[in-house]
């Protein structure tokens, strides 16, 4: 039963074809990643999938409805955090909570925002402004903001792309933990340029080929138990093989050892 559905999406900017014939579907509770080189059209794709931008042709549906404008029950983590610099961390998160739970009291809004800031370890920094926070802390606020609205589907556009490797590893685990703690399966579409990150977090991975006119690879199912540790991924035979096949696709554009690939419709 698919929840989010993209069918034959194409997008050009002027004469430049960016995305070509992209089809993708996500089941409810499924965490899907799209790996691709920079400027291959990943941001464009996630904007179209979430309804922030429109495709030239093709259709996007959510729970059977055509998507028109940003999907109501969705949350988004932006590549560049996109926090409002004149608001504190708490106010940034609270701003997302208010419209998501209009029937709540102001106190409940604040409590919800604080709860999620605590979950990303920023309870003590709640009153700081983004300028007073490090890159990793800013992205934590941005993730707390997305989760605090308790979205049914989450879009993440290279959430850790701008962070150093160490912070990145910590935040990946925090994100996995947040998904587990949500108490329900979180449907998510994550964009990343890191194969390891995709394997660590996803149920299924697609590679976006190089543009112009990028197309999507068949899905690579990640058949690994959770929670997954970064160390495990280095040694586990299944993970290593998956990494090789993804890397192969990203560099040559061809799917190696097709017998091992479980294609997902």
């Amino acid at each position: 039963m698919s929840y989010l559905n993209l069918t034959n999406i194409a997008k050009s900017f002027g004469p430049r074809s960016i995305l070509h014939n992209i089809s993708l579907s996500l089941a409810e509770g499924e965490f899907v990643s799209i790996v691709g080189a920079s400027a291959s059209g990943k941001t464009t794709l996630v904007k179209i999938a979430s309804g922030l931008a429109t495709a030239d042709s093709g259709s996007v549906t959510i729970a059977g409805r055509a998507v028109n404008g940003f999907i109501e029950e969705a949350g988004m983590v932006f590549q560049n955090y996109s926090l409002l610099p004149w608001l504190s961390a708490l106010e940034n998160v609270r701003l997302a909570v208010e419209p998501a739970f209009p029937q709540w009291t102001p106190k409940q809004h604040t409590d919800q925002a604080m709860k999620y800031l605590d979950m990303v370890g920023l309870g003590k920094a709640a009153l700081k402004t983004p300028a007073q926070l490090s890159g990793g802390m800013r992205q934590r606020v941005s993730i707390a903001r997305a989760f605090a609205a308790e979205p049914r589907i989450l879009f993440l556009d290279e959430p850790f792309g701008a962070l150093d490797a160490l912070t990145r590893a910590t935040l990946q685990q925090e994100l996995a933990q947040l998904c587990r703690a949500a108490g329900r399966p979180v449907t998510a579409l994550m964009i990343t340029n890191s194969v390891e990150e995709a394997i660590l977090l996803s149920d299924r991975i697609h590679a976006l080929g190089r543009g112009p006119g990028a197309t999507l690879s068949p899905g690579f199912t990640v058949d690994l138990a959770r929670p997954r540790s970064a160390g495990l991924l280095m040694h586990d035979a299944k993970a290593v093989s998956l990494r090789h096949r993804l890397a192969e696709f990203l560099t040559t554009g061809a799917v190696a050892a097709p017998a091992l690939v479980k294609e997902v419709a």
Binding site: S50, L52, G69, F70, E72, A74, G75, M76, F78, S82, L84, L95, A96, P99, A100, R145, A149
Partner: peptide, 8 residues
């Protein structure tokens, strides 16, 4: 985009 995503 933030305004749209947060449904302000």
């Amino acid at each position: 985009n933030v305004a749209k995503v947060l449904r302000l």
